[in-house]
Amino acid sequence: MQNRLFNPDKRITYLLLLLVMIFPLINPLGIAIKPSENTLLAYNYVEGLQPGSTMILFIDFGMGQSAELTPQVIASLKHFSDKGLKLFAATQVPEMSTALTGYLAETYGAANKEYGVDYVDLGYFAGAESAIGAMGDSLIDVFKADVNGTDLTTLPIFKSITKLPDINVMFAVTASGTIPFIRQANAKFGMPIIFSVNAVMGPANVPYVQSGQAVSVLVGSTGAAEYETLINQPGTASAAMDAQSLAHLVIILLIVWGNIGYFLEQRRNKEKNA
């Protein structure tokens, strides 16, 4: 009986978690979202930029991490668009080229920003870190044309921008690693970088903020929800926070429950052997 109580069928655990997540998605609880220090750092930095400042966005995650990172991209792009930042957007992941076009349409496009003047979609580029390194010498040699095949030299946004150091700040949304960007942009040119990473990578990358190598590291969908709160435009990440909070609470209770069972089992074995 005790065994079944403390070692239930795993399907019961999964069903419990599913129900706990579905309930707040249908009936939101309205748990307050308090922006963390890292999110405030990123938000305040962008707020401090002058309209017309340039930003390069790198999308470095696949569809598998899109649930976590897409809300961050959308919230950030809305903020950049509201601030009047000129945006260069590119992706290192082939399948995200179409998604990137969609992100830009939903944000800069919807805000009636002019393509080629206020923003440019550079699409997919191959070469990963070596390509980022080559951008330090010439952006046009790496990309040559935008996602529609338009020669970059004909676009007004490239009038005063020829290489990566000409751009004011980088926003790297990555699920594979921050090191290439730090090595090729920050260490080489001192370029300020705002990172958005998935939750798994959060703890390992926060030291870059403490060392001054990154402006901020926005972590997972929690970072996205906090950013949405700061820009006052709640989206999918904010909607997910109630479910996230309840799921974590249930997991903590299950861990405590499992540990109680473990120690009771230990005591029973000791009594049996005594």
Partner: peptide
């Protein structure tokens, strides 16, 4: 947290 986010998505 990351895995929960993906499931919630």
């Amino acid at each position: 947290m990351g895995r929960c986010s993906i499931l919630i998505g």
